[in-house]
């Protein structure tokens, strides 16, 4: 059944950082909004939420410069 989470999905934990990225633990891959799979190579990854990163789907700290010039909407 599709609503039964897979063992993988059960182990994946996410933590949203206000004004910053989404921390993801326990994932083997990250599927972006275009459906492209990105391999996860470290124990915790930061997924970009401001969409300004030059390393999408990963955060590269760019959100700080975005929120500095324009008040954050996140």
């Amino acid at each position: 059944m599709s609503e039964v989470p897979t063992a993988d999905a059960q182990d994946v934990r996410t933590q949203a950082c206000p004004g910053g990225p989404l921390l993801v633990r326990g994932a083997a891959t990250w599927v972006d909004s275009d459906g492209i799979e990105h391999p996860v190579t470290r124990p915790v990854v930061a997924v970009c939420r401001c969409e300004r990163s030059q390393r999408l789907p990963w955060c590269d700290g760019t959100h700080k410069f975005v929120t500095r010039t324009a008040p954050s909407v996140a």
Partner: peptide, 15 residues
């Protein structure tokens, strides 16, 4: 360190 420290920043400040 571009990617690693973007993660570590959040870990170090928040977690």
């Amino acid at each position: 360190h571009v990617e690693a420290d973007a993660v570590h920043e959040q870990l170090a400040i928040r977690s």
